[in-house]
Design a protein around this nucleic acid. Structure first.
Length: 513
RNA sequence: CGAGGUGUAGCGCAGUUUGGUAGCGCGCUUGGUUCGGGACCAAGAGGCCGCAAGUUCAAGUCUUGUCACCUCGACCA
């Protein structure tokens, strides 16, 4: 049996001691958690409308992150949560394949020497890589990095695969797990291990690679809108915020209900930085050898976190129908009365025929308990069926996105109406989220305006001079960061929001997860 | 890594000040009555009180050490 020892390398950070002293008195506001009751927690969280709802653990993970010290904040996803991920995978794969991409798989362990080849990349990831030093009972001659991302190992393989311009473009995606030894973790948003997809493509020239970067960014944006019912802001990252090793990084940013921004997907243009480091050359039509141009892009299980925080409410999860593991749940009432069980089974068959993911819950629990249970789980549509309904030839329905409202649909129309309802629920959820984001986005012109926006939990659209010093200042004073620069660069002013100097770019600032 | 906090039943916690039979709520099991918004009655099961050493007639409680977790910073998809 192979034994692995993970060595956690930290980069010592110099700390300003006077600052520490100043902070010492400020820690008294830690209020101890009261008794944990799901209902209470949900209510409380809805009231303060801040931060990550507590019920996500109950519904999606059910346990805390693994309760074992040496592995920091890794994830356990229960079947219900994983089913959401599978739906995300399916929808995303459809889109990748429609745009000519293929799936492949590369190794988990990366030789340390590969990892060292691109300087900026190493510098960016060194603090958070886990390294295998022993295997097979012996110390390894060369250490192995557990992938924090796969650029290096994939480029190593690509260098063997690419010889001619006819081999390009090379459009490959990988579904995999990743380890990044984060200092602070948070379920789904930042875990030391997470699942993701990473696409790595090679192109014959810069423009094609840049086009790919933008193509996928647009794909992500469309995916968030049409699958997750979540509006996002797409744009280019500043040099300060870009990916380690990239020339340009783009992101989609989603607004959570506390007004914080969540980077939900990124795409990168690398130029020839990695292809030069890994010697990926091809012979072009003009007979000369050239380095290929590269892009990479990824989204992760963070998307599940985004869903939870963008759509959740006081009753719990609220899942968009496209990714909901159960799209409709049938709850029979008074099953001992004649006809109820049969009618429920018949509706189930109708819905399955119509392509709806449906569950019939005929367990012993009381109806009231089930109502709450499936609302907590975010099931978009609930179908109640009891003796009173049967008398009238209808079922009583309740939409998760308009919880509380009930309406009836005649039994023989269930098959055709349910898919329409699910579509409408998606649309309503998207509009709600869009309105929320628009209402919490503000254009600001100076630091005071920016400060007010940040303190009010808003996105701030501003002009910026392009200097990293101003980004640093905003971060230091307001603990907010630049999110991205939208493609629509129509100016909203001519002065930098921070220094008042000549503005060059339009940019979003927000507090971020 | 800096500051603060917490480890007691599956989950959430009380008990520690002042040492003296291991408790509560939820959940779980069995039986019954219920069933249109988280039911009720009755009976039950479940504990190396994080770990180790020490003080004591006696330690969940005091002392020392140790392991781990949480929150907030700094860092990051």
């Amino acid at each position: 049996m192979t034994k692995l020892w993970l060595i956690y390398k930290t980069v010592a950070k110099e700390t300003d001691k006077t600052e520490k002293k100043n902070n010492m008195g400020k820690q008294n506001n830690n209020v101890k958690d009261e008794k944990f009751d799901t209902r209470e927690a949900v209510k409380e969280i809805a009231d303060i409308n801040a931060d990550f709802p507590a019920w996500y653990t109950d519904v999606v993970i059910k346990t805390k992150l693994v309760d074992y010290g040496p592995i920091k904040g890794t994830m356990v996803i229960r079947p219900y949560g994983y089913a959401i991920w599978e739906n995300i995978q399916r929808e995303m794969n459809n889109r990748f394949k429609a745009t000519g991409h293929e799936n492949a798989y590369f190794p988990l362990l990366i030789p340390y020497s590969f990892f060292l080849k691109e300087a900026e990349h190493v510098e960016g990831f060194a603090p958070e890589v886990a390294i295998v030093t022993h295997a097979g009972g012996e110390e390894l001659a060369e250490k192995l990095v557990i992938r924090p991302t796969s650029e290096t190992i994939i480029c190593h393989m690509y260098s063997k695969w690419v010889q001619s311009y006819r081999d390009l473009p090379l459009l490959i995606n990988q579904w995999a797990n990743i380890v990044r030894w984060e200092k602070t973790t948070r379920p789904f948003l930042r875990t030391s291990e997470f699942l993701w997809q990473e696409g790595h493509t090679l192109h014959a020239n810069a423009q094609e690679a840049i086009d790919e970067t933008i193509l996928i960014l647009n794909l992500y944006e469309e995916f968030c809108k049409n699958v997750l019912a979540m509006p996002v802001i797409a744009g280019k990252k500043t040099q300060k915020e870009k990916f380690a090793g990239a020339i340009d990084t783009y992101s989609i940013e989603a607004m959570m209900q506390d007004g914080k921004s969540l980077q939900s997907g990124t795409t990168h243009y690398f130029g020839t930085r990695f292809t030069e480091a890994f010697d990926i050359k091809f012979q072009d039509v003009d007979k000369t050898h050239k380095y290929a141009y590269e892009s990479s892009w990824g989204t992760s299980t963070r998307l599940i976190g985004a869903l939870i925080m963008a759509h959740g409410d006081a009753r719990g999860l609220c899942l968009p129908p496209k990714v909901a593991p159960i799209q409709a749940v049938i709850i029979p009432i008074a099953t001992h009365k004649p006809g109820v069980t049969e009618a429920a089974a018949s509706i189930k068959m109708q819905l399955e025929k119509a392509g709806v993911r449906v569950k019939l819950d005929d367990s012993d629990e009381r109806p009231g308990w089930k109502f709450n249970e499936y609302e907590l789980k975010g099931v978009p549509l609930r179908i109640e069926l009891g003796p009173k309904d049967l008398e009238n030839g209808v079922a009583t329905l309740s939409r998760r996105d308009k919880a509380g409202e009930k309406f009836v649909v005649s039994l023989d129309e269930m098959g055709e109406k349910t898919p329409l309802l699910l579509g409408d629920i998606h649309e309503n959820m998207y509009q709600k989220a869009l309105l929320f984001m628009q209402s919490r986005t503000e254009t600001v012109y100076d630091m005071e305006g920016l400060r007010a926006a940040m303190e009010g939990g808003k996105f701030a659209l501003a002009m910026w001079c392009g200097e990293v010093g101003c980004e640093d200042k905003v971060k230091a004073e307001l603990s907010a960061t630049s999110r991205n620069m939208p493609f629509d660069q129509t100016p909203v002013g001519d002065k930098c929001v921070c220094c008042g100097g000549k503005a060059k770019r339009k940019i979003f600032f927000a507090k971020a997860y």
